Simulated scan of single mutants.
Amino acid sequence: MDSSITTGAYKIVQDVGNFTETESTRPDFNHHSDTPIKVTKSPYPNWQYGQGVPDDNKSARNTHHEIDPYAATRETVSNYRLLISAIAPRPIGFVSTVSAPDENGRTVENLAPFSYFQLIEHDPPTFVLGFSGRPGREKDTFRNLKQTGECVINTVSEGMIEAVNATSIDAPYGVSEWEISGLTKAASSTVAPAQVRESVFSVEGKVVDVKEFAPHVPGMSGAGVVLIQATRFWVKEGAANEELSHIELEELRPVAQLGGIAYGRITSVFERPRTRWAEEVGKSELLQELERRQKDQKS
Protein backbone atom coordinates (compact mmCIF):
# COMPACT_ATOMS: atom_id res chain seq x y z
CA MET A 1 0.00 0.00 0.00
CA ASP A 2 1.32 3.45 -0.91
CA SER A 3 0.72 5.46 2.24
CA SER A 4 1.95 9.00 1.69
CA ILE A 5 1.24 12.67 2.27
CA THR A 6 1.69 15.22 -0.51
CA THR A 7 3.71 18.27 0.55
CA GLY A 8 4.31 20.77 -2.22
CA ALA A 9 5.59 18.83 -5.23
CA TYR A 10 6.78 15.86 -3.17
CA LYS A 11 5.29 13.07 -1.09
CA ILE A 12 6.14 12.16 2.49
CA VAL A 13 5.95 8.38 2.59
CA GLN A 14 4.57 6.62 5.66
CA ASP A 15 6.22 3.27 4.97
CA VAL A 16 9.43 2.09 3.33
CA GLY A 17 8.00 0.04 0.46
CA ASN A 18 9.31 2.20 -2.41
CA PHE A 19 11.49 4.55 -0.41
CA THR A 20 14.70 4.33 -2.46
CA GLU A 21 12.77 4.97 -5.67
CA THR A 22 10.80 7.81 -4.07
CA GLU A 23 13.88 9.49 -2.61
CA SER A 24 15.67 9.38 -5.96
CA THR A 25 13.10 11.85 -7.35
CA ARG A 26 13.72 14.43 -4.62
CA PRO A 27 16.14 17.38 -4.69
CA ASP A 28 19.53 17.00 -3.00
CA PHE A 29 19.92 18.00 0.65
CA ASN A 30 21.30 21.52 1.05
CA HIS A 31 23.99 21.37 3.73
CA HIS A 32 24.01 24.14 6.30
CA SER A 33 27.07 25.88 4.87
CA ASP A 34 24.91 26.78 1.88
CA THR A 35 21.66 27.41 3.76
CA PRO A 36 21.97 29.71 6.78
CA ILE A 37 18.99 29.67 9.12
CA LYS A 38 16.63 32.51 8.25
CA VAL A 39 15.12 34.67 11.01
CA THR A 40 11.67 36.03 10.15
CA LYS A 41 8.89 37.93 11.86
CA SER A 42 6.43 35.87 13.89
CA PRO A 43 3.21 34.74 12.13
CA TYR A 44 1.14 37.62 13.55
CA PRO A 45 3.50 40.32 14.92
CA ASN A 46 0.59 42.72 15.60
CA TRP A 47 -1.36 40.18 17.69
CA GLN A 48 -3.37 41.61 20.60
CA TYR A 49 -4.51 40.00 23.87
CA GLY A 50 -7.74 38.07 23.43
CA GLN A 51 -7.40 37.85 19.65
CA GLY A 52 -6.98 34.08 19.41
CA VAL A 53 -5.81 33.02 15.94
CA PRO A 54 -6.37 35.99 13.59
CA ASP A 55 -7.40 33.94 10.58
CA ASP A 56 -11.01 35.14 10.15
CA ASN A 57 -12.16 32.41 12.59
CA LYS A 58 -11.11 29.63 10.23
CA SER A 59 -9.36 27.72 13.04
CA ALA A 60 -12.23 28.35 15.45
CA ARG A 61 -14.62 26.57 13.07
CA ASN A 62 -12.62 23.32 13.10
CA THR A 63 -14.52 20.12 13.88
CA HIS A 64 -12.88 17.06 15.43
CA HIS A 65 -13.15 13.27 15.59
CA GLU A 66 -13.47 11.74 19.06
CA ILE A 67 -11.14 8.74 19.53
CA ASP A 68 -11.20 6.21 22.34
CA PRO A 69 -7.59 4.92 22.48
CA TYR A 70 -8.77 1.77 24.29
CA ALA A 71 -11.68 0.87 21.97
CA ALA A 72 -11.89 -2.87 21.28
CA THR A 73 -11.77 -2.26 17.53
CA ARG A 74 -8.76 0.07 17.65
CA GLU A 75 -5.30 -1.40 17.12
CA THR A 76 -2.48 -0.16 19.35
CA VAL A 77 -0.40 0.64 16.28
CA SER A 78 -3.03 3.21 15.28
CA ASN A 79 -2.43 5.05 18.55
CA TYR A 80 1.32 4.93 17.93
CA ARG A 81 1.03 6.31 14.41
CA LEU A 82 -1.43 9.00 15.47
CA LEU A 83 0.64 10.19 18.43
CA ILE A 84 4.02 10.40 16.72
CA SER A 85 2.45 12.38 13.87
CA ALA A 86 0.56 14.70 16.24
CA ILE A 87 3.12 15.31 18.98
CA ALA A 88 5.76 16.83 16.75
CA PRO A 89 8.44 17.91 16.43
CA ARG A 90 10.09 15.76 19.08
CA PRO A 91 13.77 16.01 20.06
CA ILE A 92 15.87 12.91 19.56
CA GLY A 93 17.63 11.55 22.62
CA PHE A 94 20.65 9.67 21.32
CA VAL A 95 21.57 7.48 24.27
CA SER A 96 24.77 5.58 24.99
CA THR A 97 24.72 2.84 27.64
CA VAL A 98 26.80 -0.13 28.73
CA SER A 99 25.38 -3.45 29.92
CA ALA A 100 26.13 -5.00 33.29
CA PRO A 101 28.97 -7.57 33.14
CA ASP A 102 27.91 -11.11 32.22
CA GLU A 103 29.17 -14.25 33.98
CA ASN A 104 32.48 -13.87 32.14
CA GLY A 105 32.84 -10.20 33.01
CA ARG A 106 32.04 -9.02 29.49
CA THR A 107 29.95 -5.93 28.80
CA VAL A 108 28.16 -4.74 25.67
CA GLU A 109 28.03 -1.10 24.56
CA ASN A 110 24.72 0.15 23.21
CA LEU A 111 23.80 3.28 21.24
CA ALA A 112 20.19 4.06 20.32
CA PRO A 113 17.93 7.00 19.34
CA PHE A 114 14.73 7.80 21.26
CA SER A 115 11.90 10.09 20.23
CA TYR A 116 10.12 9.75 23.58
CA PHE A 117 12.63 12.08 25.22
CA GLN A 118 12.68 15.52 26.81
CA LEU A 119 14.44 17.90 29.21
CA ILE A 120 12.08 18.45 32.16
CA GLU A 121 14.11 20.53 34.66
CA HIS A 122 17.31 22.58 34.74
CA ASP A 123 18.02 22.58 38.51
CA PRO A 124 18.93 19.81 38.94
CA PRO A 125 19.25 19.15 35.18
CA THR A 126 16.78 16.31 34.66
CA PHE A 127 15.69 14.39 31.57
CA VAL A 128 13.00 11.79 30.85
CA LEU A 129 13.24 8.82 28.52
CA GLY A 130 10.15 6.84 27.53
CA PHE A 131 10.26 3.19 26.47
CA SER A 132 7.23 1.83 24.63
CA GLY A 133 6.08 -1.76 24.87
CA ARG A 134 6.92 -3.98 21.92
CA PRO A 135 6.81 -7.66 20.96
CA GLY A 136 9.58 -9.73 22.51
CA ARG A 137 12.23 -8.66 24.97
CA GLU A 138 12.60 -5.14 26.34
CA LYS A 139 14.97 -2.65 24.76
CA ASP A 140 18.65 -3.07 25.58
CA THR A 141 18.90 0.57 26.67
CA PHE A 142 16.05 0.12 29.16
CA ARG A 143 17.66 -2.97 30.64
CA ASN A 144 21.09 -1.32 30.82
CA LEU A 145 19.72 1.76 32.58
CA LYS A 146 17.96 -0.40 35.17
CA GLN A 147 21.06 -2.51 35.75
CA THR A 148 23.83 0.11 35.72
CA GLY A 149 22.03 3.44 36.22
CA GLU A 150 24.34 5.32 33.82
CA CYS A 151 24.14 6.81 30.33
CA VAL A 152 25.17 9.62 28.04
CA ILE A 153 22.50 11.59 26.15
CA ASN A 154 23.83 13.08 22.89
CA THR A 155 22.25 15.66 20.61
CA VAL A 156 21.66 14.89 16.93
CA SER A 157 22.70 17.33 14.19
CA GLU A 158 21.81 17.19 10.49
CA GLY A 159 24.99 15.54 9.24
CA MET A 160 24.68 12.71 11.76
CA ILE A 161 21.21 11.49 10.85
CA GLU A 162 22.13 8.54 8.62
CA ALA A 163 24.49 7.17 11.28
CA VAL A 164 21.96 7.82 14.05
CA ASN A 165 19.11 6.20 12.13
CA ALA A 166 21.30 3.13 11.48
CA THR A 167 21.54 2.49 15.23
CA SER A 168 17.79 1.81 15.37
CA ILE A 169 18.31 -1.46 13.49
CA ASP A 170 17.22 -4.60 15.36
CA ALA A 171 20.76 -5.93 15.74
CA PRO A 172 21.27 -9.20 17.65
CA TYR A 173 22.15 -8.78 21.30
CA GLY A 174 25.89 -8.40 21.67
CA VAL A 175 26.37 -6.45 18.42
CA SER A 176 27.44 -2.87 19.17
CA GLU A 177 25.65 -0.05 17.36
CA TRP A 178 28.87 1.97 17.62
CA GLU A 179 30.37 -0.24 14.92
CA ILE A 180 27.17 -0.21 12.85
CA SER A 181 27.12 3.60 12.83
CA GLY A 182 30.86 4.29 12.58
CA LEU A 183 30.47 7.12 15.10
CA THR A 184 33.38 8.07 17.34
CA LYS A 185 33.63 7.41 21.07
CA ALA A 186 34.83 10.05 23.51
CA ALA A 187 35.62 9.11 27.11
CA SER A 188 33.20 10.31 29.81
CA SER A 189 34.33 11.51 33.22
CA THR A 190 31.54 10.42 35.61
CA VAL A 191 29.90 7.44 33.87
CA ALA A 192 31.08 4.36 31.98
CA PRO A 193 29.26 4.90 28.64
CA ALA A 194 31.08 6.96 26.02
CA GLN A 195 29.99 10.23 24.47
CA VAL A 196 29.44 10.62 20.74
CA ARG A 197 32.23 12.93 19.61
CA GLU A 198 30.27 14.05 16.53
CA SER A 199 27.51 15.47 18.77
CA VAL A 200 27.60 19.18 19.52
CA PHE A 201 26.27 18.63 23.06
CA SER A 202 26.37 15.59 25.33
CA VAL A 203 25.10 14.97 28.85
CA GLU A 204 26.52 12.38 31.22
CA GLY A 205 23.71 11.22 33.47
CA LYS A 206 22.64 8.86 36.23
CA VAL A 207 19.25 7.27 36.78
CA VAL A 208 17.24 8.65 39.71
CA ASP A 209 13.94 6.82 39.14
CA VAL A 210 12.38 4.13 36.97
CA LYS A 211 8.64 3.58 36.51
CA GLU A 212 7.44 0.46 34.70
CA PHE A 213 3.93 -0.13 33.31
CA ALA A 214 2.14 -3.40 32.68
CA PRO A 215 1.61 -4.05 28.96
CA HIS A 216 -1.80 -3.06 27.64
CA VAL A 217 -1.64 -5.79 24.99
CA PRO A 218 -0.72 -9.39 25.94
CA GLY A 219 2.63 -10.54 24.59
CA MET A 220 4.19 -7.08 24.59
CA SER A 221 7.14 -6.07 26.76
CA GLY A 222 6.19 -3.56 29.44
CA ALA A 223 6.54 0.16 28.85
CA GLY A 224 8.54 2.39 31.16
CA VAL A 225 9.81 5.85 32.02
CA VAL A 226 13.30 6.66 33.28
CA LEU A 227 14.31 9.91 35.00
CA ILE A 228 17.96 10.87 34.52
CA GLN A 229 19.90 13.66 36.22
CA ALA A 230 22.98 15.17 34.61
CA THR A 231 26.42 14.81 36.14
CA ARG A 232 28.41 16.53 33.37
CA PHE A 233 27.81 18.61 30.24
CA TRP A 234 30.07 18.52 27.18
CA VAL A 235 29.78 21.14 24.43
CA LYS A 236 31.75 21.32 21.19
CA GLU A 237 34.44 23.99 21.21
CA GLY A 238 33.35 27.06 19.29
CA ALA A 239 29.66 26.12 19.43
CA ALA A 240 28.74 28.11 22.55
CA ASN A 241 29.21 31.63 23.87
CA GLU A 242 32.07 32.59 26.20
CA GLU A 243 30.05 31.81 29.35
CA LEU A 244 29.08 28.38 27.94
CA SER A 245 25.45 29.32 28.58
CA HIS A 246 24.09 29.29 25.02
CA ILE A 247 24.71 27.02 22.02
CA GLU A 248 24.43 28.70 18.64
CA LEU A 249 21.62 27.25 16.53
CA GLU A 250 23.82 27.41 13.42
CA GLU A 251 26.26 25.08 15.21
CA LEU A 252 23.70 22.73 16.77
CA ARG A 253 21.58 22.25 13.64
CA PRO A 254 19.16 19.97 15.53
CA VAL A 255 17.07 17.29 13.84
CA ALA A 256 13.50 16.63 14.98
CA GLN A 257 11.52 13.43 14.69
CA LEU A 258 8.11 13.69 13.02
CA GLY A 259 5.43 11.18 12.05
CA GLY A 260 6.18 7.95 10.21
CA ILE A 261 9.81 7.85 9.07
CA ALA A 262 10.07 11.62 8.59
CA TYR A 263 12.63 13.93 10.20
CA GLY A 264 12.67 17.72 10.22
CA ARG A 265 15.41 20.35 10.13
CA ILE A 266 15.47 23.99 11.19
CA THR A 267 15.57 26.33 8.20
CA SER A 268 13.79 29.36 9.63
CA VAL A 269 12.99 30.71 13.09
CA PHE A 270 11.09 33.60 14.66
CA GLU A 271 11.19 35.03 18.17
CA ARG A 272 8.51 35.97 20.68
CA PRO A 273 9.52 37.58 24.00
CA ARG A 274 7.94 36.28 27.24
CA THR A 275 5.64 38.89 28.78
CA ARG A 276 5.00 39.99 32.37
CA TRP A 277 1.61 41.05 33.70
CA ALA A 278 2.89 44.16 35.48
CA GLU A 279 4.45 45.45 32.28
CA GLU A 280 1.55 44.52 29.98
CA VAL A 281 -1.61 45.33 31.94
CA GLY A 282 -1.30 49.07 31.35
CA LYS A 283 -1.15 48.51 27.58
CA SER A 284 -4.28 46.36 27.21
CA GLU A 285 -7.91 47.16 28.00
CA LEU A 286 -8.66 43.42 28.11
CA LEU A 287 -5.99 42.76 30.76
CA GLN A 288 -7.21 45.75 32.78
CA GLU A 289 -10.77 44.38 32.67
CA LEU A 290 -9.59 40.92 33.72
CA GLU A 291 -7.65 42.47 36.61
CA ARG A 292 -10.75 44.40 37.71
CA ARG A 293 -12.82 41.19 37.69
CA GLN A 294 -10.18 39.39 39.69
CA LYS A 295 -10.17 42.15 42.34
CA ASP A 296 -13.99 42.19 42.46
CA GLN A 297 -14.03 38.43 43.12
CA LYS A 298 -11.70 38.90 46.08
CA SER A 299 -13.72 41.72 47.64
Rank of each mutant, 00 (worst) to 15 (best):
D2C: 02
I5T: 11
I5W: 01
I12L: 13
V13Q: 10
V13G: 06
G17N: 10
G17P: 00
F19I: 14
E21M: 07
T22P: 00
P27H: 12
F29W: 14
N30D: 01
H31W: 07
H32E: 13
H32D: 13
T35Q: 10
T40V: 06
T40K: 05
S42C: 06
W47I: 14
W47R: 13
G50C: 09
G50P: 11
P54A: 08
P54T: 09
P54S: 09
D56C: 12
K58E: 08
A60K: 14
N62G: 09
T63R: 13
D68W: 06
A72D: 09
R74Q: 04
S78D: 13
N79K: 05
N79D: 05
N79L: 05
Y80A: 02
Y80Q: 01
Y80F: 15
R81G: 06
I84W: 03
A88T: 10
P89V: 02
P91Q: 08
P91H: 07
I92C: 02
I92G: 00
F94R: 07
F94L: 06
V95W: 01
V95Q: 05
S96M: 08
E103G: 03
T107A: 09
E109I: 07
N110K: 08
A112H: 03
P113S: 01
F114E: 03
F114H: 15
Y116V: 14
Y116K: 09
F117L: 08
I120S: 05
I120P: 06
E121W: 11
H122F: 13
T126K: 07
T126P: 01
V128H: 10
S132K: 13
G133D: 00
P135G: 12
P135Y: 00
G136L: 02
K139T: 04
K139I: 01
D140P: 05
K146W: 06
I153R: 02
T155P: 01
T155C: 12
T155Q: 05
V156Q: 09
S157G: 15
M160C: 08
E162D: 15
V164A: 06
V164E: 10
I169E: 14
Y173R: 12
Y173T: 11
V175A: 09
E177L: 13
E179R: 09
I180E: 05
A187H: 09
A187F: 01
A187S: 12
A192H: 03
P193K: 00
A194L: 10
V196M: 00
R197S: 14
E198K: 04
S199L: 08
S199G: 10
F201P: 04
S202F: 05
E204Y: 08
G205L: 03
G205A: 14
V208D: 03
V210M: 03
A214R: 01
P218D: 15
M220K: 02
S221K: 00
S221V: 04
A223G: 14
G224N: 09
V225G: 02
V225K: 05
V226F: 06
L227N: 04
Q229E: 15
Q229V: 13
A230L: 09
V235T: 11
G238W: 08
A239V: 08
A240W: 13
E242S: 15
E242I: 05
E251Y: 08
R253D: 04
Q257C: 06
L258A: 12
G260K: 02
G260H: 04
F270H: 13
R272Q: 15
P273I: 03
P273V: 04
T275G: 10
W277E: 07
A278Y: 07
G282E: 12
S284A: 10
L287P: 01
L287F: 06
K298T: 06
S299M: 14
